[in-house]
């Protein structure tokens, strides 16, 4: 349709406006170092948020992602440190840790999924519970302190975060890859259609021969895998994990999804919007760092305002059609 669709174009326009503000705020904003930093930083929340787009589209919610990321980071570091004694090749150790990370993410998602579908507990409660469990497990494993990755492995692994391909850091490429796969999966496959249908009306989905429980569980597993991918590129950045790792990721991820135009009650989701949402959130933080006009401590407040305004605009746009 030739008419401008505010629902689709809105987040994109907001991104451009915020970008332009950034340009005026500080010359350093446009430096290639700053821009690639923004992209790299947004990839963690972005990847998690792509998983969250599936969960929310199918009518669920996952609050456990931040704790899950911390827990997986801890497991990866413990595993890599332990393998140091028996395996010589750093690359093999890192590879094994990545496989383990994906496995833990998938299983953690499966648990969330089964508890919501088979035990029939509301997703909010299930993931509130697992959020506490993972957070407390990582604190316990780290004995209240910090788990640090062995420096020898850290040196090799840091390439995953700091390495550059065609001018862009690796995490950005991973983000892009996950986004493309997510887009295709949500918009062009049977599974994606089923996510929309389940989130829109479970009863209709059931009477349309859709295995509702399986679709929902799959979305939580996808979420777990996305958390694991984000963790895989996050661990080399700091080389440590603690009870403070991944704090509030769940809220930032949900915020990115909502800013992007996905509907919180389910039935409608947009991967492209989620990517833009993650970029907007990171941009705001970055711009506040570069300016004295607004305190950096108000980052959360500005993000909160953006979420509320975004949803307000979306609702308004709906009422008109």
């Amino acid at each position: 349709m030739p008419k401008l669709d505010l629902k689709t174009a809105g987040p994109f326009i907001a991104l451009i406006v915020i970008f332009i503000i950034g340009v005026f705020v500080n010359e350093a904003f446009l430096s290639s170092g700053n821009l690639s930093n923004i992209l790299a930083r947004s990839s963690f929340i972005g990847i998690v948020a792509i998983g969250a787009t599936f969960v929310i589209t199918a009518g669920g919610i996952d609050l456990s992602v931040g704790s899950m990321a911390a827990f997986i980071s801890g497991c990866m570091i413990l595993l890599m440190n332990a393998l140091m004694d028996s395996i010589d090749s750093m690359v093999v150790i890192i590879f094994l840790a990545i496989i383990a990370s994906l496995g833990i993410g998938a299983v953690a998602g499966l648990i969330n999924g089964l508890l919501t579908t088979k035990a029939k507990i509301e997703a909010f409660i299930v993931t509130l519970g697992t959020m506490g469990i993972y957070r407390s497990l990582i604190t316990y494993i780290a004995d209240g302190g910090t788990l640090s990755l062995n420096f020898t492995i850290g040196d090799v692994y840091s390439e995953v975060y700091y390495g550059v391909f065609l001018g862009l850091p690796y995490p950005v490429w991973v983000f892009l890859g996950v986004a493309i796969i997510g887009y295709v999966l949500l918009n062009m496959t049977v599974f994606g259609r089923h996510c929309f249908a389940v989130g829109s009306n479970e009863s209709v989905a059931r009477y349309s021969a859709i295995n509702v429980d399986r679709v929902k569980t799959m979305t939580y597993m996808l979420q777990g895998i996305c958390v694991s991918i984000a963790t895989i590129i996050y661990v080399p950045r700091l080389g440590s994990a603690s009870g403070q790792t991944g704090i509030l990721w769940e809220l930032e991820a949900i915020a990115a999804v909502i800013i992007g135009g996905t509907v919180l009650k389910g039935g409608y989701g947009r991967i492209g919007g989620t990517v833009i949402g993650a970029l907007i959130l990171t941009l705001i933080g970055n711009i506040l760092n570069l300016t004295d006009a607004v305190s950096n401590y108000l980052n959360g407040a500005v993000q909160g305002i953006i979420v509320i305004v975004a949803v307000y605009l979306q609702r308004g746009a709906w009422r008109r059609d």
Binding site: V190, R193, H194, F196, A197, S200, N201, S203, V204, A205, R206, Y207, S208, A209, I210, G267
Partner: peptide, 21 residues
């Protein structure tokens, strides 16, 4: 309305939902 059609989804979406395979 409750179990047959997704009232807020398009016609094609509804039409093919049972036979996507």
């Amino acid at each position: 309305k409750g179990s047959g059609l997704l009232l807020e989804k398009g016609l094609t979406f509804n039409f093919s939902l049972f036979s996507l395979h």
